[in-house]
């Protein structure tokens, strides 16, 4: 799907973090949680920046896409300068894989680090719509960078926060909170005397954030026997699986972040090789 888009709003919510709403009536209904759109910053001219930018969709509201992004380079700098009503951009999408939701999911866990919480937004809503209680662990450098925190608190989710500087929630790293949550669930299972541990233990976890964080959290979860999914951000050229520029090393060889991913089962990812292959 190709579609010209209109900027509905584009405002800073933290230092260098923006909340962008795009009107995209044809694309919006097709998006599923975890997918991305490939955004051209100016379709009228300008070969710089030349390439499209892959941006995860945080939420869909009617015919609008909500996208959270950080200003990290030329492309996002240009994007931050786009005014309300701008019609110079277009997207192709939705692209990539989505967070899988098995029919029998009862006790999911969501772990988001920094802007990594954004691609998990639609997934959290999907669970809410199904009446499934999801536990959320969200971490960031500072309280200010705990994006969409208010939205979470408004719906009284089972949510805990961690910040690197202690300005909100737990003062420390997210893996501590993940271990704590696993221990609580394990105790709960013991206390209720439920023979099926799955009654309270997490049956699936969805993790998105900086790759070292994804690696650390996945290791803890996989060790506890929790099925875990992660999402990979990569610089991309085509975005549709043609150029092989955005590969992620897996136990089955190289997979494309754009077309095979961005969502992968954590157990199949070779995290150390993946981290080494990133450009900064």
């Amino acid at each position: 799907m190709y579609e010209p888009v209109e900027v509905v709003s584009n405002e800073a919510v933290a230092a260098d973090v923006y909340r962008l709403r795009l009107r995209a009536p044809q694309t919006a209904p097709l998006v599923r949680g975890g997918q991305f759109v490939h955004l051209r910053l100016n379709r009228h001219a300008a070969h710089t920046p030349l390439l499209r930018r892959p941006l995860s969709v945080c939420q869909v509201y009617g015919d609008e896409l909500l996208i959270m992004y950080a200003v990290v380079g030329t492309g996002t700098e240009v994007l931050a300068g786009k005014a309300v009503g701008d019609t110079s951009m277009d997207i192709i999408g939705p692209l990539g894989s989505c967070w899988p939701i098995e029919e029998d999911v009862r006790t999911p866990l969501i772990v988001g680090g920094g802007l990594g919480i954004a691609p998990l937004g639609m997934l959290a809503h999907a669970f809410r719509d199904r009446g499934i209680n999801v536990k959320i662990i969200q971490a960031a450098q500072t309280a200010e960078r705990l994006i969409v925190r208010e939205a979470h608190e408004r719906v009284k989710r089972d949510i805990v926060f961690a910040t690197d500087d202690g300005t909100c929630g737990y003062h420390g790293i997210v893996t501590d909170l993940v271990r704590e949550a696993l221990a609580e669930r394990a105790e709960g299972a013991e206390r209720t005397g439920d023979t099926a541990e799955a009654a309270t233990m997490f049956d699936v976890a969805y993790v998105c954030g900086p790759e070292p964080m994804q690696k650390a959290v996945s290791e803890v979860l996989l060790q506890a026997g929790v099925r875990t999914y992660v999402s990979f951000e990569r610089r991309m050229a085509c975005g549709v699986g043609a150029c092989l520029g955005c590969t992620v090393p897996t136990i089955d060889g190289l997979k494309r972040a754009c077309a095979d991913g961005p969502v992968f089962a954590a157990e199949e990812v070779c995290f150390d090789d993946a981290i080494a292959s990133r450009v900064h």
Binding site: H47, T48, L50, R235, M236, G245, R278
Partner: peptide, 23 residues
């Protein structure tokens, strides 16, 4: 062929560099 490891695409002014390695 598995192609090259490390960075594979890199944007430049009005262009891009690639090092896919014929995967």
């Amino acid at each position: 062929w598995s192609g090259n490891s490390g960075v594979r695409v890199y944007e430049t002014p009005s262009g891009m560099l690639n090092s896919i390695g014929l995967q």
